[in-house]
Design a binder for these strands. Structure first.
Length: 422
RNA sequence: GGAGGGGUGGCCGAGCGGUUUAAGGCGACGGUCUUGAAAACCGUUGCAGGGUUACACCUGCCGGGAGUUCGAAUCUCCCCCCCUCCGCCA
């Protein structure tokens, strides 16, 4: 969410940001609401001041056993007017906030211009895609061959876009989860295991609501949502709090299952593990001072890269362009891992700086040491990493001619085996 | 699910219809004193919105929301959270 005063006073900056994002939103209704909201507010404050003063007077008169009936009668009218104004104030507040909640974040100046994903810019590349002397298989063929994935039964149990991992497949998933968490905690991230059902306030805090309800699974009875990413519960750990400057940056890592409707992605990645309604992910979250957040984004991104490097998986880093940027983000790097089965790089992590966009929604502030007042923190997060897609990358990149799969050295302690298959 | 008890400033804790502009304490900060420190004493002490060049000033905030009243931390209703006991349960 953007600051209402900022939007009010910088309409041209907002318009420009929206243009860069390829988004069309008319600001006129907001300006009109704000005009009414502020004039109502000023009138309301005046009347309340009067009420406070006269109430004091009434109190004094009554103490002196004098008649205050005239004043009381007079105040009845004032009181009624205050009530009316309060009512319209409430609805104007809500209208203004509802509008602001649908405005996306302003892209940072360093974000490349572009209208869609074709405008994304490769920042760097690591590792060389392996040359195969045979036709590499897809991960689902490999999975089936080794009996470690069972999509048919997953569909029976739940439906399409669910998976059932078995034997060494399930074990590999668990090994990756532990490997990633150990890696992240060794770099100073505190491990947390948060709720995966959250309330609407948390979803609003990180920006999933109100705009993206259609992408979420919702529990019917008590209004919980299943999280689409650990970003939601972890960022909301500090919702409504004021942090101390010396504690920053606050860094968390969390493993959670993630749940996404994937509405509108019919026909995309229908086979295999790439796009699931439920998948596992380890997330990195940082709360920082505003002046540090871009350096922290580089740090967070390299922390996610370290995991790919540790697994010796070739990848590249893409800077998302203005047209491809997520709603809440001011700047995002995507990590894309090489998948021989598809012959292309696929997203495996997304690392973003939200600046104060989420912090303002979720009311997460900090106090500078020795200074008065508070400021919003900057929040960042990134996958470190999507576990299912990492598993896919390992199967496809480490497959051998006979179909067996070599386990990356770094994972061997977690797997207790060096190989899947003969 | 049933019964009861609670949610007040950074923390503890009083207040239960009208100098509450929230007592008192702890903590923190500043000062006096001191060779220095401690103690003692004095003072200061939140958040948000409006407003101002900046001050001043005004308003709101006692878990959240709605209401009663000239006036609500205090009374009524709804909701959330915490604690104790019972039931159920991994």
């Amino acid at each position: 969410m953007l600051d209402s005063r900022f939007v009010r006073e910088n309409p041209e900056k907002i318009a420009q940001a929206l243009r860069r994002r390829n988004t069309e939103i008319d600001l006129a209704p907001f300006r009109e609401i704000e005009e009414r909201r502020l004039s109502t507010l000023r009138r309301l404050d005046d009347l309340r001041e009067k009420r406070n003063k006269v109430s004091e007077e009434i109190s004094r008169l009554k103490k002196q056993k004098q008649d205050a009936q005239g004043l009381i009668e007079e105040m009845k009218g004032v009181s009624d007017e205050i009530k009316e104004l309060e009512e319209s104030q409430r609805s104007l507040d809500r209208e203004a906030r509802d509008f602001l909640l649908t405005l996306p974040n302003i892209p940072n100046e360093s974000v490349p211009e572009g209208k869609d994903e074709t405008g994304n810019v490769e920042v760097r590349k690591w590792g060389e895609p392996r040359q195969f002397d045979f036709e590499p298989l897809n991960h689902w063929d490999l999975g089936e061959m080794h009996g470690i994935m069972d999509f048919e039964r997953a569909a029976k149990i739940a439906g399409a876009r669910f998976s059932l991992m078995k034997g060494m497949g399930a074990r590999l998933e668990r090994a990756l989860m532990n490997y990633m968490l150990d890696m992240n905690t060794s770099k100073g991230y505190m491990e947390v295991l948060p709720p995966i059902l959250v309330n609407p306030e948390s979803m609003t805090g990180t920006g999933q609501l109100p705009k993206f309800e259609a992408e979420l699974f919702k529990i019917a009875d008590p209004g919980f949502y299943l999280i689409p990413t650990a970003e939601v519960p972890v960022t909301n750990i500090h919702r409504g709090e004021i942090l101390e400057e010396e504690k920053l940056p606050v860094c968390y890592t969390a493993y959670t299952p993630c749940f996404r409707r994937e509405a509108g992605s019919y026909g995309k990645d229908t086979r295999g593990l790439i796009r699931q309604h439920q998948f596992n992910k380890v997330e990195l979250v940082r709360f920082t001072r505003p002046e540090d957040s871009y350096a922290e984004l580089e740090k967070l991104t390299s922390n996610a890269e370290d995991i790919l490097r540790g697994l010796e998986l070739p990848y590249r880093v893409m800077a998302l362009c203005t047209g491809d940027l997520g709603f809440s983000s001011a700047k995002t790097y995507d990590l894309e891992v090489w998948l021989p089965g598809q012959g292309k790089y696929r997203e495996i992590s997304s690392c973003s700086n939200f600046e104060d966009f989420q912090a303002r929604r979720a009311d997460i502030r900090f106090r500078r040491t020795g200074k008065k007042g508070t400021e919003f923190v900057h929040t960042l997060n990134g996958s470190g990493l999507a576990i299912g897609r990492t598993l896919v990358a390992i199967l496809e990149n480490y497959q051998q001619k006979d179909g067996s799969i070599i386990i990356p050295t770094a994972l061997m302690p977690y797997m207790g085996a060096g190989k899947i298959g003969e």
